[in-house]
């Protein structure tokens, strides 16, 4: 558990110890004290609360995530290599942004956490900063992007943020901070009646068929190809589409596949509502199973090796 020199994560992972040290600092500190949290912990809200209880004036997150970045497969050692050996490191940069934002949200949504948050992790442009601020960050911090591109990226960050705020009518940062937080809910509070399906814009489609492959092998066999070998543009089989978004995420053309709403927006029913009403599946072959009537191809059709025409069109 000990970080070398007996500092660091070992303390960050023990909320009680963290609280004690924050209170030591607060015994003498005259300027505001920010407590920087390690993400190498199961529940980030515990050290966040401990920071506040110890008297901390703010928290910042995240520091780096324990990682091995890769293995030199010829010399059997991980990177970075130090004289033929290596050690685990700390991970940061664009790849950690989703993890940082989730931890930020978890802290920012705590009703009893009153202290402000400085957001860190994978920020490299104004849009990233806006996302962090909408999730409750008061300031944002940047490391990797500056190590990559230098201090000059700040010009675009500042002017982009200003433009965004002007477009949205925000006069200051207080007006925009945390605006996305009320919309991040527990899964069981989401509307089960909401229904979207994929729609391919034929004018934009380049016929790469990546969407077809993704849906066919990785989702719900809801995209078909044409019989005509000269027509490479796929078609969505709406009744098979569960609205998972996968095809729209793999499509390389911007807004070529759009998810279109099909419910009328009048009904609202959540898993929680259904649970309270005793209307959820509880047995293995429950008739309430969500996928019960969802069509799937016959298993043996997989082996026919023909242009799939097996869709129930």
């Amino acid at each position: 558990m000990e970080c070398e020199r007996g500092m660091g994560s070992a303390v960050g992972q023990e909320p009680k110890v963290l609280m004690t040290i924050v209170s030591w600092v607060k015994e003498v500190a005259k300027v505001p004290v920010i407590v920087k949290l390690t993400p190498n912990i199961t529940d980030i809200t515990r050290p966040a609360r401990a920071a506040q209880e110890g008297g901390g004036d703010a928290i910042s997150l995240i520091n780096t995530i324990q990682s091995l970045i890769g293995v030199d497969i010829d010399n059997f050692v991980t990177y970075p290599v130090v004289d033929g050996k290596s050690s685990n490191g700390g991970y940061c940069g664009p790849a950690v942004k989703p993890i940082a934002m989730n931890m930020l949200k978890n802290c920012a949504q705590l009703p009893d956490l009153k202290i402000p948050i400085s957001g860190i992790g994978g920020i490299e442009n104004w849009r990233d900063a806006v996302e962090f601020i909408l999730l409750g960050a008061t300031s944002v911090q940047v490391c990797t992007a500056v190590m990559h591109y230098g201090f000059g990226i700040i010009r675009e960050m500042v002017s982009g943020l200003e433009r965004y705020m002007d477009d949205k009518g925000f006069e200051n940062l207080d007006q925009m901070r945390g605006r996305a937080l009320p919309n991040v809910m527990h899964w069981e509070d989401l509307n089960l009646k909401y229904k979207v399906v994929a729609n391919i814009n034929e004018d934009k489609c380049i016929g790469c068929q990546l969407c077809y492959t993704a849906c066919e092998d990785g989702a719900h066999q809801a995209i078909s190809l044409s019989d005509d070998p000269l027509n490479r543009k796929p078609t969505i089989i709406e009744e098979n589409c569960v609205g998972c978004n996968l095809c729209s995420l793999v499509c390389p053309v911007e807004s070529c596949i759009e998810m279109q709403r099909r419910d009328d927006g009048k009904e609202h029913l959540t898993w929680k509502d259904r649970t309270l009403a005793g209307n959820i599946p509880v047995t293995f072959n429950d008739p309430l199973a969500g996928g019960l009537h969802h069509w799937v191809p016959e298993p043996a059709e997989a082996l026919t090796k023909q242009t799939p025409l097996h869709y129930k069109l």
């Binding site: 202290i115 190590m147 940062l173």
Partner: peptide, 25 residues
């Protein structure tokens, strides 16, 4: 023009963009 003045628990800065503690600092 939007005002980017930032105040985090009393720490004031002209905009919310700070360098994180690392080699650039």
């Amino acid at each position: 023009m939007a005002n980017l003045q930032t105040n985090l628990a009393g720490i004031k800065s002209p905009n919310p963009f700070w360098l994180a503690s690392a080699p650039p600092t």
